[in-house]
Write a protein that binds this DNA or RNA. Structure first.
Lengths: 142, 142
DNA sequence: CTGCATCCTCAGCGATACTG
DNA sequence: CAGTATCGCTGAGGATGCAG
């Protein structure tokens, strides 16, 4: 069973496998847990949004303004996606004008601390090496 | 300057920012190091391939056979990409029939240990929570 | 302020066939 | 065995406009 939800223009990235223990057996199959997690945060905007939320709740507009290049369409879509995966909560204050804010769940914070932060950390440390490798490769291969 | 290399049908994912220290200042800009690293491994096949290579060198065919759904076209392309980022080395033995194998560089191994492994680990631990959240969300929102 | 709907473009990638 | 070239589909995602 694959949950696919038609949303807006396309589909939510909902090709999430039901969790079964035997999936741990072979990480080289597509749809293994690690790939599922990558799919969850590897789209264009999830990581920045999660990072941005790590210090507390933010409103739609605050997120939109603080991540360059992010369109409002993709913000909403990504937030829904994160919400559906239990990483973010959405709270609506029924006032006028409308006030909505988003906050990491414990699960979301855990994902940030255990997975995203290490990755960011590695990035900080090794971007130089990567850039150098790229330049080197470029030089050799044209 | 953005390095974009025309390759085969499309482009290598080479929109890599030259490394500059000030990029560390704001992780919410696109093209910050962490996003660059995500871009590096977040495509469909990089992570599985890196995982597969963590135990030592493998031949093209071995990789192809051991990752389900991976086409030979994408394997070559992804390997070139990884190679250009300094994560993988490609060694050609000029024999007949041709023999080529791929191996993680120190940088690649470091990426695996410091970034990919923690992520996989988190995935193993929390896939259940995510699946549950998904089901819950599905139930509420349809 | 928040966010859904529509239109449109272009990159990712699979299938297939061909070379050294 | 390893890799390249071509074709075509599909879906991510930007722009814009409307609604509660």
């Amino acid at each position: 069973m694959i949950l696919v939800t038609k949303v807006q223009n396309g589909y939510m990235r909902s090709d999430f496998p039901p969790y079964r223990p035997e999936m741990q057996a072979n990480v080289f199959r597509r749809r293994c847990p690690s790939n599922a997690v990558l799919d969850m945060i590897a789209d264009k905007w999830s990581a920045p949004i999660i990072s941005r939320l790590k210090n507390g709740k933010l409103r739609h507009g605050e997120l939109l303004g603080s991540i360059e290049g992010l369109s409002q369409r993709m913000l909403t879509q990504t937030l829904r996606d994160l919400e559906s995966n239990g990483l973010v909560t959405r709270t609506v204050y029924p006032v006028v004008p409308l006030h909505v804010d988003y906050e990491l769940t414990d699960l979301g914070r855990s994902l940030y601390d255990k997975a995203l932060k290490p990755l960011t950390h590695w990035a900080m440390e090794h971007m130089g090496d990567v850039a150098q490798a790229r330049a080197e490769f470029e030089r050799r291969a044209g």
